[in-house]
Nucleic acid binder design. Structure first.
Lengths: 125, 125
DNA sequence: CTTACTATTGCAACACTGTCGCAACAAAAA
DNA sequence: TTTTTGTTGCGACAGTGTTGCAATAGTAAG
C-alpha cells in the first residue's frame, strides 16, 4: 500500500511536531481547524501507527493519544516507557524511564501501555 | 453515605469473586444475566471503586476492567502493578511484579495504569 | 500535457462505552 | 409499621472511534 502526500496528512503531522507531546484526536482536530473531517484524522493517525510514524497511547480516560516516535525503527518498536497525563491541563507526555516487566511463562507481549495520571508541576496547587 | 446490601450488589460481587480475574463491564453483565440494568452495574462498580473494594483498570482497548482489591487497605491503595490483557481470549489478569516509576520534579501521581497486551499461554499458537 | 490507477477524502450512519436525571422501589433503622 | 434515603430501572444523552460508499485528487506512465 503506497502512501500519498496530502494536505491533511501534512497538517496532522505538523500538529504533532509542533506540540512535541502526545495529542488526543480532538486536540489535533482543534489544532488544525475543522477544515478536515473527523474520520479522516482518525484514518491518518491509524495509518501513522501502522507505518511506525507515531505510537498510540490509551490513557486512563479511555481516549487514544498519539505521539511521534523518536528513535525507534520500523521493525523494533520499543515503547515500553510510561506516559504521564495531567488531570489539570489534560496534557500527555512521555516519561523517560524505561521499564521491563516479567511475564508468566508462555506469554507473549504485543503492546505496552503504561500511563500515570496526576498533576504536573504547573497544575500542582 | 451508608451502603446497603442489595441483590444486584451481591450478584456483581460474586461474579468478580468467581472470576478471580479482572472483568469488563459487559462480561459482568453477561455473567449475572440481563436481569440487572446496565446503568446499575456501572453504578455498583463505581461504588466499589470508591469504597476500595475493587480497582479500575483501563486497558488498551479503551474499556474499563474491574478486579477485586487484595491486600490493600482503604487508605493506602497500592495498585502499581501491571495487568495483562490477552488479545485472544480477552481476559485481563493482574501481574505480580510491582513497579515504581520516577516522575519529574513537582509532579504528583494520582493513579497508576499499566497494561500489557499480547497472548497468554493458552492462546499462544 | 493527458490519461489511468487507486489511495485518500468527506459525508453519513453506525456501534459501543459510560454517564445522568428522575420517578419508583426497597433496605435499614426508628 | 412507618420513615428515611440509598438504589434501581428506564430513557436519553455525550463522546469516541469505525465503516461503507461515492467523489476527489495524488502519482506515475504514456
Amino acid at each position: 500500500m503506497k502512501r500519498r502526500n496530502t494536505p491533511s496528512k501534512t497538517a496532522v503531522l505538523s500538529a504533532l511536531e509542533q506540540a512535541g507531546t502526545a495529542l488526543s484526536h480532538d486536540k489535533i482536530l482543534a489544532s488544525i481547524g475543522d477544515s478536515i473531517d473527523r474520520a479522516t484524522v482518525y484514518r491518518i493517525l491509524n495509518r501513522f501507527c501502522d507505518d511506525g510514524i507515531t505510537h498510540r497511547i490509551v490513557a486512563d480516560d479511555g481516549k487514544q493519544y498519539f505521539a511521534l516516535c523518536e528513535g525507534c525503527s520500523h521493525e523494533a518498536h520499543a515503547h515500553n516507557h510510561f506516559h504521564f497525563r495531567c488531570l489539570g491541563c489534560d496534557s500527555v507526555e512521555c516519561l523517560s524511564s524505561e521499564v521491563t516487566v516479567g511475564l508468566p511463562k508462555g506469554y507473549r507481549a504485543e503492546n505496552f501501555n503504561g500511563v500515570i495520571s496526576g498533576f504536573c508541576a504547573g497544575c500542582e496547587a
